[in-house]
Computed example of a mutant assay.
Amino acid sequence: MTGHDLDGFRGEVRDWCRAHVPADWRRSQTGATDPEFVRFQHEWFQQLRRAGYAVPHWPREYGGGMSLPEQIVLYQELAAHDAPRLVLAFVAVHHAAATLLAAGTDEQRRRHLPAILDGEIWVQGFSEPGAGSDLAALRTSARRDGDGYVVTGQKVWASGAQYADWCLLLARTDPVAPKRRGISYFLLDMRSPGIQVRPIRQATGESHFCEIFLDEVRIPADGLVGAEHAGWQVAQQTLGAERGLTMLELAERLGNAGFRWLLEACERADPGGRRALDDAVVADRLAALEIEIFGLRALCRDLVERHEAGVAGPADASVVKLYYSELLQRVTDFGTEVGGLAAHTTLRKPMSSGWESGAWVLDFVGSWEWTIPGGTSEIQRTIIAERGLGLPREPTGT
């Protein structure tokens, strides 16, 4: 696509956003009930779908087909116009789709990809109480029984499980094999008997994360993705969906709404008429954060382009994840500091926003989520050291 064509596409997306992004969505989604949140997310997803913007990264035959430059423009404009995030559909659109396209059968793709476009919601059932950062240590078991499998175990930190129709599930099918070689990957219908979902009450008052208890749950044989015992390799396709454009979208949102709320907090006058921005130290820190955000956006775009070209390094995604998550903490921490006591009284935020809502205390508490899942910051640094810089591996014992 030429630069002129891309400018035309940007104009189309910009016009669509002006006409369709709900002007009052932040107000209506603040304090929304679960049914109101689910209804809003479904309606917003279908608006994006009708415009051809819901799954731009999917193959054309499944409703996508946008070029990489077009996808970058789309996410930039959605962020610039403060569009709601697809919170509810995120796992389905990215993780489930990536898994099905890379390792699923034709029947699995035919069954689920159109259903996702119609609103099917997915949850990721990977982490366990004793297998968070060390995912391969999971203990949920799946034993072969006739024409299917019987699964027993527990999952935790399952985001949005209370809304989900289906689950991407890792379970151990060979208890004696080395831990990465005895895992299988399943598609689990969340309406199956024997499943119990318990939302976890968080410090923010939300219940975004959940526990999933599995008690002798049957999964048909056609729910297996890839070969039996080869689930670890399939899971890498799932986790790979967190790279590239998903990080670019988050970076663009931090650089648009996030920085805009931060600037407004610094410009707001206190009862005595003083603005935080008039303090040289505050102005200096604000400028430094703006530079960091600019660098993050450039880094994300570079990763996306090199990943598309097949020349991304083995630790590049870890660099971006580490940089984003810790910069998000610095931005929200500064917003909380500048907001003062008033920031601590804002105890609700829009349910369809990300971690840049301007409710600084809630955003700051939520920002810590990003330094833990998907590999903690410590694990990311190890990956960068060993795979990116070629440093010796850490000793495993004496």
Results as ranks from 00 to 15, higher is better:
His20Glu: 15
Met1Val: 11
Val225Met: 10
Leu6Asn: 10
Ser28Gly: 00
Asp333Val: 01
Ala317Thr: 07
Gln47Trp: 00
Ile183Lys: 04
Pro175His: 11
Gln196Asp: 13
Gly255Gln: 10
Trp355His: 13
Phe209His: 14
Trp157Asn: 12
His42Arg: 13
Gly194Met: 10
Cys210Ile: 05
Gly354Val: 07
Val197Arg: 11
Leu86Lys: 04
Arg26Asn: 07
Ala80Gln: 12
Gln233Val: 07
Leu113Ala: 01
Asn256His: 15
Ala343Trp: 00
Thr140Ala: 13
Arg50Val: 02
Gly223Met: 06
Arg85His: 10
Gly240Glu: 07
Gly388Tyr: 04
Leu389Tyr: 11
Leu74Asp: 06
Ser141Lys: 14
Thr2Leu: 00
His229Arg: 15
His81Tyr: 14
Ala158Met: 07
Leu6Cys: 06
Leu303Asn: 13
Leu88Trp: 09
Gln71Ser: 08
Phe334Cys: 02
Gly358Thr: 06
Trp157Ile: 08
Gly11Arg: 12
Gly273Thr: 04
Pro35Leu: 01
Trp44Tyr: 10
Asp34Tyr: 08
Glu228Met: 09
Ile72Glu: 04
Arg191Pro: 04
Tyr149Leu: 10
Leu168Glu: 08
Arg111Ser: 01
Ser192Asn: 05
Thr2Arg: 07
Leu188Tyr: 05
Ala298Gly: 15
Ala315Glu: 01
Trp25Arg: 03
Arg172Ile: 04
Ala269Glu: 15
Val156Gly: 07
Asp165Ala: 05
His112Lys: 02
Arg109Gln: 11
Gly194Phe: 03
Arg172Asn: 09
Ser377Ile: 03
Asp24Pro: 04
Asp333Phe: 04
Phe209Asn: 15
Val319Tyr: 07
Asp134His: 12
Ala265Ser: 10
Arg18Phe: 00
Glu369Lys: 06
Gly258Trp: 05
Ala161Tyr: 13
Ala343Arg: 01
Leu168Ser: 03
Arg10Pro: 03
Thr246Asn: 12
Ala276Asp: 11
Met351Glu: 15
Gly340Asp: 13
Ser192Asp: 06
Glu43Leu: 05
Val21Cys: 09
Glu386Arg: 09
Gly125Phe: 00
Val197Asp: 12
Val197Leu: 11
Glu120Gln: 14
Trp355Met: 09
